[in-house]
Design a protein around this nucleic acid. Sequence first.
DNA 1: AGACTAAAATAACATATGTTATCAGACGGG
DNA 2: CCCGTCTGATAACATATGTTATTTTAGTCT
Lengths: 185, 185
Amino acid sequence: MSRKASVTESMILDSAFALMQEEGFEQVTARKLAAKAGCSTQPIFRLYENMDQLIGKVYSRAAAYFAAFCEAYPQKESLPFIDLGMAYISFAAKEKNIFRLLFMSGHQGEKSMYELLNGEKGTVGREVARAGAKGVRNPGELFMKLWIFIHGSACMALTGDFDLTEAETEALLISIYQAYTEAMK
Amino acid sequence: MSRKASVTESMILDSAFALMQEEGFEQVTARKLAAKAGCSTQPIFRLYENMDQLIGKVYSRAAAYFAAFCEAYPQKESLPFIDLGMAYISFAAKEKNIFRLLFMSGHQGEKSMYELLNGEKGTVGREVARAGAKGVRNPGELFMKLWIFIHGSACMALTGDFDLTEAETEALLISIYQAYTEAMK
DNA sequence: AGACTAAAATAACATATGTTATCAGACGGG
DNA sequence: CCCGTCTGATAACATATGTTATTTTAGTCT
């Protein structure tokens, strides 16, 4: 047969993801990636047709990373949507570049915001059901309104126009949740 | 004396602004701008030290454009903040590239979101005063909450995750306004 | 009209990027 | 142990960008 490859796909993809995370997806260039992976640019083009395809894989990985982040985020609140919202805002603050790629780049060849949020676990669906069980009249509408607020918070966190602590953020979300549910009674 | 300049600053700045509006500020390159202005790249560097300085001017112009847009937006609603919010969301939907430059690029060497909103006319201050006069308990807090929602709507409009008509948007904003004010009583 | 001078076009330089060609060599199989 | 083959490094090509040097050109003033 032929020679064994010393540069593996995971070496490249790991490096590409790290580069995106640290410097933004615009900075994932062939040469920078090669330097990060400790090889020349050749293995990249053996593994991927072109840089766009590679970025597509990085995007998928970012989506999985986000899902895992939400999964791992502490579920302390009994109200539906709040924990997911807290995870989302926290993610935007801590992982600006990943958040940008997933939710602000218009890179939606892959998934819509709703699909990303819902993930493989059907998170949003589960939360909507929880809200319904709690007696919320129109849980889908509540989710939409809450999510717009949460997305706004996250985007402002990214640009530095929102700098509350986690505790303050949580209190704010709860107050918003209550205002919405009261108004929908 | 010497020769008169045939390429004026306004020719360059107009072209740069148009280019930013049509293709995004990342696309305002020396050569593309020269082509748009119908000259070579030389006059650009006579008028500006470098491309960054030029983009700074484009940014200022965009801020003025946004202020004028808000000024011209129909003031039909008697509730404070709503007209400004409608203008903001409408602006995000119609002028994606300008909105990106002003509110999503982290290009805040110039002005914060609040300064941009408040403009020269003190728009936000005026609206806060109006809300106070209407008996709102804590108009600053109300503004903050409403604005997070409005910014979220605008950002989602940009990425295609928010596609309500103007009328639907207005109804939504009013319902949010009422939910917040009720909750703050 | 002619000379001077600044403007503007052209061309060049330096760098960055995607992508491909060339080629030495390392590895698997006989 | 050698052969073939595929890997991966180097180098190259093509393009894009900011910026600067050089040259041409066109006003302006005398």
